[in-house]
């Protein structure tokens, strides 16, 4: 089962946690300097080891652009990975939330995605894969600079830990720019999960570490997890101030959003994100009781263009067909 299908009541504010470790093999160039033959060699070496550990191999040259796009929409691979011209493959173990990109900008990118706030567990799962590879392959590492990566911003631990948070109250109160400023001072960063900056679609944000050199993995996870707890408190404090008596307009917006999601005949992705945010806040405030986080959050990853095309059994959908399919999907789920 994919991580986004495991949403529980406790995922009120934190939707998911992700830990990504970048690793490279000694003796091979990075990124654009890597030849097709060298990329294939790396995929065979690393992919072979992971296949023996229960991973499924997805060769990106063997799948359709729509299938590749759907894997991007599920956040298993990056946008850059989908468009690569040299051989690249994804090693997937959905049960453990593990997705390993081979020959992205780094040779190996181990990612673990977990539902809710579970940074330590995600790190443990990613490290298990790292140790497996470390035992068999020569990993590029320097005693001074740590794990050597294509981009110097990842040197050191080469770990990027991130948490996806739903922050509608902080967004409405205009507190995101101040939060952005505060986090940057402690080496963390916040950005919109859909779209950039403060105009984040769906009030969904990703908070992650920026610094990887001169800090241990444990310190990074602790710092991020402390920040997430503080942000959760602020969001909850603001949510507690929203009442039907004082904020009838917010309650009205939530109820209308539910109506539109349940009954629309055509639904664009921007509209979906706006109403998703209102409905999700409605569940949190106890205004809407018949919709679960699990159903709502699963839609987030199923109503994107490529995912929709696949579920409709087509290679591609035009905009009108997509909006129709999205509305139908949302209506069926809710």
């Amino acid at each position: 089962m994919a991580w986004y299908n495991k949403t529980q009541k406790s995922n009120d504010i934190v939707l998911s946690s992700r830990v990504r470790l970048a690793r490279n093999l000694e003796g091979y160039p990075f990124g654009g300097r890597l030849s097709g033959e060298q990329a294939t060699e790396i995929i065979d070496k690393v992919g072979g080891l992971l296949e023996a550990s229960g991973f499924e191999k997805i060769d990106f040259f063997a799948i359709s652009p729509t299938e590749a796009g759907a894997l991007y929409e599920k956040h298993y691979v990056s946008r850059e990975f989908v468009g690569k011209k040299t051989p690249h493959a994804l090693m997937l173990n959905e049960t453990c939330g593990l997705a390993v990109m081979l020959c992205e900008e780094d040779h190996v990118r181990i990612q673990c995605l977990m539902s809710g706030l579970a940074l330590e567990e995600a790190y443990k799962n990613a490290v298990a894969v790292d140790d497996r590879l470390d035992g068999e392959l020569a990993i590029a590492y320097s005693d001074t600079l740590g794990y050597l990566t294509h981009c110097p911003t990842n040197l050191g631990t080469a770990m990027r830990a991130s948490v996806m948070m739903f922050l509608p109250a902080l967004t409405m109160a205009g507190r995101i720019p101040a939060l952005m400023n505060r986090l940057s001072k402690i080496g963390l960063t916040i950005r919109g999960f859909y779209g950039e900056g403060t105009e984040a679609g769906g009030s969904l944000y990703q908070i992650s570490n920026q610094i990887t050199l001169g800090i241990t993995e444990e310190q990074t996870l602790q710092k991020l997890s402390d920040a997430v707890k503080q942000i959760t408190e602020s969001e909850n404090e603001l949510r507690a101030l929203i009442t039907p008596e004082k904020n009838p307009k917010i309650i009205d917006r939530i109820c209308r959003a539910e109506g539109i999601l349940r009954h629309a005949y055509l639904l664009s992705s921007d509209e979906f994100l706006t109403y998703y945010s209102d409905v999700r806040l409605g569940i949190a405030l106890g205004v809407l009781e018949s919709i679960t986080y699990k159903d709502l959050d699963s839609l987030l990853f199923e109503v994107m263009p490529c995912g929709l095309a696949l579920s409709e059994g087509k290679a591609d959908l035009d905009e009108r067909e997509r909006d129709r399919a999205r509305a139908r999907r949302v209506k069926e789920t809710l």
Binding site: V127, Y141, T144, L213, G214, T216, E217
Partner: peptide
Amino acid sequence: ATLRSIHGNTRHIGKAPAKH
């Protein structure tokens, strides 16, 4: 100098591969 401006540091203190 570049590393210091990115990370505020120039030396790794985290995990290492077994052989290192």
